[in-house]
């Protein structure tokens, strides 16, 4: 049993391979269809959610940076909760960027053999994804060393790629263990707290371990006490949280951040 996360620079290829791997292994496929459920769960506009998954905020777009982060946090929290079930193939949800440190998650990158696009178009698309992943998670998704398995469809045909992925997923090193499940449930808890806080705040970073949560934020001297109290109250209400610690860095600009 494991989680297989498939990423590619081409959404169609990513989905097609993920679907075949899920069918071959009798695993559940977790893809962009869950965004509708995410939108319902957090009562947000599904269109904005889909938009947030591919664009970065800018002065000229309707999505503010704070809203964008909140929308991504909702997706992350929802996906992580679903991944706790195990035996899942996940694609199209950028899980490879936030399911980190989980040893039973096999991260696969498919280099597309898409001949319909020119080299320049392909390069542009990669640059866009790099920009998005850096802005969203401070991770460069085009950096191949961050994946467990990289398959080049220019050299390997899709059926062989599916076989390679299912074979690798069977390696003992990718099986669930107590440590990896705990890492995943800690990530899921941190993500739930993140959603609760980002709804009304910005400059939030959350880490969780065994129900203890550390929230790092920024605040000016005047807002510091109130912000700490609010964070403790909001985070404390999240299911699974037993203890909340807040670390505040001084906001040198003196701007209120939530």
């Amino acid at each position: 049993m494991s989680i297989i996360i498939i990423a590619s620079d081409t959404a169609e290829i990513e989905h097609s391979i993920a679907q075949k791997v899920a069918a071959a292994m009798d695993y559940q496929l977790l893809d962009r269809r869950i965004l509708e459920d995410t939108a319902k769960k957090y009562q947000i506009d599904p269109g904005k959610l889909a938009d947030a998954m591919k664009t970065t905020p800018s002065l000229f777009k309707s999505l503010s940076s704070g809203q964008w982060r909140y929308l991504l946090a909702c997706v992350e929290a929802h996906v992580l909760d679903r991944l706790l079930a195990d035996k899942i193939v996940c694609c199209g949800l950028s899980a490879h960027l936030y399911v980190t440190g989980v040893s039973h998650a096999l991260n696969v990158r498919i280099l597309s053999g898409d001949d319909s696009q020119s080299e320049k178009e392909r390069e542009n698309r990669l640059q866009q994804r790099k920009k998005w992943s850096m802005a969203a998670y401070n991770e460069d998704e085009t950096e191949l060393s961050r994946y467990d398995l990289v398959i080049n469809l220019d050299q390997i045909d899709p059926a062989e790629a599916v076989k390679t992925i299912t074979g690798a997923a069977g390696y003992r090193k990718f099986q669930v263990m107590t440590y990896s499940m705990k890492c995943l449930s800690d990530l899921a808890l941190a993500a739930r707290v993140n959603v609760a806080l980002l709804k009304t705040m910005t400059d939030i970073s959350v880490q969780a371990r065994d129900g203890s949560v550390i929230v790092s934020t920024k605040a000016g001297n005047r807002q510091k006490r109130k912000k700490v109290e609010t964070i403790k109250e909001l985070a404390g209400k999240v299911e699974g949280v037993r203890y909340v610690e807040v670390h505040v860095k001084k906001n040198l600009l003196g701007v209120t951040t939530g």
């Binding site: 989980v102 263990m177 107590t178 990896s180 705990k182």
Partner: peptide, 27 residues
């Protein structure tokens, strides 16, 4: 000192399970 690499190595070499300290005896 748990890391993904060490955890995977231990499992590959046949460990039954891997748990990070601190843990409760009940775990």
């Amino acid at each position: 000192y748990a890391t993904v690499e060490i955890a995977r190595e231990a499992l590959s070499k046949g460990a039954f399970d891997f748990i990070a300290k601190p843990f409760k005896p009940s775990d």
